Simulated assay, not measured.
Amino acid sequence: MRHPGFQKGSKPLLALDNPFPMELPENLFGEKWAFVQLPISAVREEVSSLETRLVFGAGLDLDLLGIEIDDKTLIPGLAVATSRARPLAAWMNGLEVCSIEAELTRASLILSVGISTRYIYATYKKTPVTTNEAEAWEAAKKACGGLHFLAIQEDLDSDDCVGFWLLLDLPPPPV
């Protein structure tokens, strides 16, 4: 809305559908994953390290998007760990990673890439505990205006990322 070319009330140029998620290509698999949270200051630090370190990923211009977040806010994310973290991050870097959502009915995580591609990124055993965790993660995303991240690491206990993408859930365009 702060972009100089923004026109309130203008119609979208094209309508997008929400396609059924496909099977994840073999080269994009991680070995482990976990729902995580980082303070916005740590997220900003990771995004700034994309320019200074040899890390794959992408950030967002939160000011241009009009997103104002308190410094104490925890940003939800997905940490993926694998012994082949660098190759996985390189493959992910070749995609336009848009967002990740927890699909509660299918007990899966959906990775949206590009304009209309969705993959089943991971699945989990559907139990009351896992469903509550996925619901809490989605609620945390909603509380941040859809802001979340994807971090690729060699180990889930590591503080270092080899890939970091700051993501945003956007509502579907009006039709």
Rank of each mutant, 00 (worst) to 15 (best):
R2P: 03
P4N: 06
P4G: 03
G5L: 14
Q7H: 11
Q7D: 07
K8A: 15
G9H: 04
S10E: 12
K11P: 00
P12Q: 07
P12K: 03
L14H: 10
A15C: 09
D17H: 03
N18S: 14
P19T: 08
P19L: 08
P19S: 08
P21A: 12
M22I: 09
E23K: 11
E23S: 15
E23I: 14
L24C: 09
L24V: 06
E26Y: 05
F29D: 13
K32L: 12
Q37C: 10
Q37P: 02
L38G: 04
P39C: 14
P39H: 10
R44A: 13
E46P: 11
V47D: 01
S48I: 04
L50N: 05
T52I: 09
T52S: 14
T52Q: 05
R53T: 12
F56I: 01
G59P: 05
G59S: 06
L60W: 01
L60P: 02
L62N: 03
D63V: 14
D63Q: 08
L64W: 01
L64M: 11
G66H: 04
G66D: 13
G66W: 04
E68L: 12
K72L: 15
T73P: 01
I75H: 00
P76Q: 03
L78E: 00
A79N: 08
V80D: 01
V80P: 12
T82P: 00
T82R: 02
T82K: 02
S83G: 15
S83Q: 10
A85Q: 01
P87K: 12
L88T: 00
L88K: 00
A89Y: 01
W91I: 04
W91C: 13
N93A: 07
L95M: 10
E103T: 13
T105A: 15
T105C: 11
R106L: 15
A107Q: 07
A107V: 05
S112Y: 02
V113E: 06
S116N: 12
S116Q: 08
T117C: 06
T117V: 15
Y119N: 08
T123C: 14
K126Y: 03
T130L: 09
T131G: 09
N132I: 08
A136H: 04
E138C: 10
A139L: 09
A140Y: 01
K142A: 15
A151Q: 02
E154L: 11
D155V: 10
D155Y: 03
D157F: 03
D157E: 13
S158M: 10
D159M: 10
D160Y: 09
C161M: 11
C161T: 06
V162I: 14
G163Y: 00
G163R: 00
L167V: 06
L168V: 09
D169I: 14
D169H: 09
P173C: 09
P174S: 08
P174K: 05
V175Q: 10
